[in-house]
């Protein structure tokens, strides 16, 4: 059944697949995770701030994003970002936005909703005595968040945040719908150019599988270590 398959096509396209495709995927994953975490934390703080309106807005944003399929959100931002850019820069026409920027904005905004839920759970898991002790020492609300609550919440939630990042890593493959050459896009381009769908998709699957497996194994190890320290 592997008779007329040509696995050499993989070897020939390795530089393209990894130097172009995978580096795009990893860059997108890393920056989106970072941006998503920062925005997500801000959203979580808004929700827990005690200001009703602020909390309401943040909650609506999270629920809204989590109700939509990522593919639809990718399309939304692909068409929306040029207009947002125009509005921000005051240009006369919608600005041209590169594929990377467009996907990055999409994933940051989308993942922020998911990261915010994780951070919210993390912040709520810190006992109330902690911020109380911080204020007793004279720290302001911002200081107690910055130095006491957030570091603990972040550390407690690290395994969950990393697991979400693995999901994000897999989800970035959806930029395929914009014909962007991320790792899967690159594999697909070669597959279609050379008529080698079977080989290329099997290879892509194996690479995603290997990376995700190693990463989730790492997360499990980390989790076990944290569990012991506690």
């Amino acid at each position: 059944m592997f008779g007329n398959l040509d696995f050499d096509v993989i070897r020939r396209s390795l530089p393209y697949l990894f130097l172009d495709g995978m580096s795009f995927t990893l860059m997108l994953t890393g920056l989106s995770a970072l941006g998503g975490l920062i925005f997500g934390t801000l959203i979580a703080l808004m929700r827990l701030s005690g200001y009703k309106l602020l909390g309401r807005i943040a909650g609506l944003y999270v629920d809204f994003m989590r109700s939509l399929p990522l593919v639809l959100v990718i399309f939304w931002f692909y068409f929306l970002v040029p207009y947002i850019g125009q509005w921000l820069t005051g240009a006369s026409r919608p600005i041209r936005v590169g594929a990377f920027t467009s996907s990055l904005v999409t994933f940051i905004m989308f993942e922020a909703a998911y990261f915010s839920e994780i951070m919210r759970a993390g912040i709520q898991s810190i006992s109330r005595g902690q911020p109380a002790a911080a204020s007793a020492l004279g720290l302001t609300y911002a200081q107690s968040m910055r130095y006491i609550v957030l570091p603990q919440a972040f550390r407690n939630m690290l395994p969950v945040l990393l697991t979400q990042t693995i999901v994000l890593f897999q989800d970035t493959s959806l930029v395929y719908v914009l014909s962007i050459p991320d790792f899967l896009g690159a594999a697909s381009k070669v597959a279609q150019r050379d008529g080698r769908l079977v080989e290329m998709y099997l290879f892509a699957a194996a690479v995603y599988f290997a990376i995700s497996c190693v990463a989730s194994y790492g997360v499990r190890r980390l989790q076990a270590r944290i569990a012991i320290v506690r």
């Binding site: 059944m1 897999q170 989800d171 493959s173 959806l174 395929y176 899967l184 769908l197 079977v198 998709y201 099997l202 892509a204 699957a205 995603y208 599988f209 995700s212 497996c213 989730s216």
Partner: peptide, 25 residues
């Protein structure tokens, strides 16, 4: 669980759609 969790859904759909028919008799 590990098999289905560690591959993007998109890639899994490609495997079922493009690859499986080629690997079968």
């Amino acid at each position: 669980v590990e098999f289905f969790r560690n591959m993007p859904l998109l890639v899994q759909l490609f495997l079922w759609f493009f690859v499986l028919p080629e690997l079968l008799p």
